[in-house]
């Protein structure tokens, strides 16, 4: 039990690489920029280039590609659903039909492109959480939001809330699987029956889950208070945010690469 912990999806993997040591603000800005730019590009060629860039950064940060791919699991259902929608709803050259609704070649192409884009968005976002610890993400967010604190935005509180929420994700998974096991061991049936029956079987899991999570959150609040936490004012940092030359370089490099991809795509389409 002690050392057999599992890696939860998208959870920080510590390492000493140039990607890990970038300023979290730079990483957040870049990931957000890429996600926006993914919506500006539309061709398979451009997506392939974005994918290659992702793989390159993943290699730099020593994140195994498999971990990155498996981070798309939670959105798999969404990807399948939207794909089906596109395959059967886009007009064009008919390939085959199911229940009188025809699937089209154009539908398949569009479904492929949209799935590709969705997977890329998720993987870029995971790259951020895989290479940045929750506290650094929270520091970065706080730094980015701090201009707004002058107009009354509680930037520290928001950032701390995000950190704690991220910290509780693995706990939530652990507790859920423990409770399921405890009930399964007493004959609760999670395996048979239709989807509705199976979903219903999970209701008794939620009650103890909330009880446990609330109690633990309570305990954590006391523990934080006992360690002198009084909110954002006059808190210092072990690793204060420092924007270095390499952060600027990374942002500029990404800007140039993005411009090249977008410009190249325009040329191609024309």
């Amino acid at each position: 039990m002690a050392n057999a912990y599992k890696i939860a999806l998208g959870q920080f993997i510590p390492a000493d690489t140039p990607v890990h040591s970038l300023d979290p603000r730079a990483k957040i800005i870049m990931v957000m920029a890429v996600i926006i730019l993914l919506f500006v590009t539309h061709t398979a060629a451009a997506f392939t280039l974005w994918f290659l860039l992702l793989m390159y950064v993943a290699r730099l940060s020593k994140i195994p590609a498999g971990v990155l791919f498996s981070s798309t699991k939670p959105v798999l259902i969404l990807i399948i659903f939207t794909s089906c929608l596109h395959i059967f709803s886009v007009p064009g050259e008919k390939l085959f039909s199911v229940f009188g609704i025809s699937a089209t070649k154009e539908g398949f192409i569009l479904a492929f492109l949209i799935s590709f884009r969705l997977a890329l968005i998720v993987m870029y976002a995971s790259l951020l959480t895989l290479t940045t610890s929750p506290s650094r993400i929270s520091d970065g967010l706080e730094g980015l939001m701090s201009p707004f604190s002058r107009i009354g935005l509680p930037s520290h509180d928001i950032a701390m809330m995000i950190t704690i929420a991220l910290r509780f994700i693995p706990t939530l998974f652990e507790e859920t699987s423990r409770i399921i096991k405890a009930q399964e061991s007493r004959g609760a049936d999670f395996e048979s029956g239709g989807p509705v029956k199976r979903a219903m079987a999970y209701i008794p899991v939620l009650v103890p889950l909330f009880v446990i999570i609330f109690r633990r959150a309570d305990n954590l609040a006391v523990a934080m208070e006992a360690r002198g936490y009084r909110g954002g004012s006059c808190r210092t940092r072990l690793n204060p945010l420092r924007w270095r030359k390499c952060d600027s370089m990374a942002v500029i490099l990404l800007g140039v690469l993005s411009a090249l991809i977008i410009f190249g795509e325009r040329l191609l389409v024309r």
Binding site: I179, K181, A182, S185, R186, D189, E191, P204, V205, P208
Partner: peptide, 25 residues
């Protein structure tokens, strides 16, 4: 298979380390 697993669970009861893990009613 699933049926065999259920009959094993029927024969072997498991009490977890912390009661909070299994109490829910």
């Amino acid at each position: 298979g699933a049926d065999a697993r259920r009959s094993v669970r029927r024969r072997v009861g498991l009490v977890f380390q912390y009661p909070e893990q299994q109490i829910f009613a």
